[in-house]
Design a protein around this nucleic acid. Structure first.
Lengths: 132, 132
DNA sequence: AGCAAAGTTGACGTTAACGTAAGCGAAACG
DNA sequence: CGTTTCGCTTACGTTAACGTCAACTTTGCT
């Protein structure tokens, strides 16, 4: 399917279900580094690995900037011990954020549900509070 | 504290813990309709009631536009039956949205937690997938 | 009178992650 | 050789909810 283990932008789009714009955007943000054959981009296996991680990160709620930092950290591949711990921390922080976000959401849900259970009372709370 | 049951912008800010910019913004978006004494805004009891509901709505995750529509709906105060039901529906839809959002969040949390429990495996997933 | 405080109206800036369109070059196909 | 097709770059648009000036006018107080 590919002569030298590289993929065109369109092949990438189909493989990962993203738009060309997205790939170019990621390159501009220095998340991917496709080779060039003249003007055209050729995505290597490395790019594919990075993209996979980027998309996984997105599911976890990491921003592109956070993912870039994580990827860069390990691309240098030095000072392993320390770097690995940092990543681990970042991931755990993110987990904590997500949990607190979920809790907030749950509170809001409970509050709203409470109003709904009061039936018409809830609706009344949306009405003009007393006439003037 | 107020001659005719109206409040200045600053009094409102302190009472509701918002900035002047916010109140002017809400007015621009037709969520509030303060009176004018020359140039200055005077917020009535009605504005305070609306603001209270707006802030409550925000806690529930309603957008300002959604709140505007709800408030407008009841400001006209006609066709009560139908309107009330519409509001009720909107609220329930929002509740459903929030619940599905929470569920997604939970999935992401579980997924991330799963990786963390695998300890170093998780970290490895952030490393460059094999050298070239 | 004089000055600081409070208020006002623009209007541009911010953030994220792309969408979208214009205008152009190269390449593959028949 | 002509024409789709693919791709490229540049650059403005989008969305929400305000933040942050700048440049005035008005009020309140001494």
């Amino acid at each position: 399917m590919d002569s030298e283990n590289v993929m065109t932008i369109r092949e990438m789009c189909e493989a990962f279900d993203v738009t060309p714009r997205t790939l170019r955007f990621y390159e501009a943000k220095e998340l991917l580094f496709p080779l060039r054959q003249g003007q055209r981009r050729l995505f290597t296996r490395r790019d594919r690995g990075r993209l996979k991680l980027i998309l996984r990160g997105k599911r976890f709620g990491f921003s592109l900037e956070e993912m870039r930092q994580l990827l860069d950290l390990y691309d240098r591949g030095d000072a392993q011990e320390e770097q690995l711990r940092r990543t681990y921390e970042v991931a755990r922080e993110r987990l904590a954020q997500m949990e607190s976000q979920r809790d907030e959401l749950n509170e809001a849900i409970e509050e709203l549900r409470g109003q709904l259970e009061w039936g018409a009372e809830m609706i009344a709370s949306f009405r003009r509070p007393a006439a003037e």
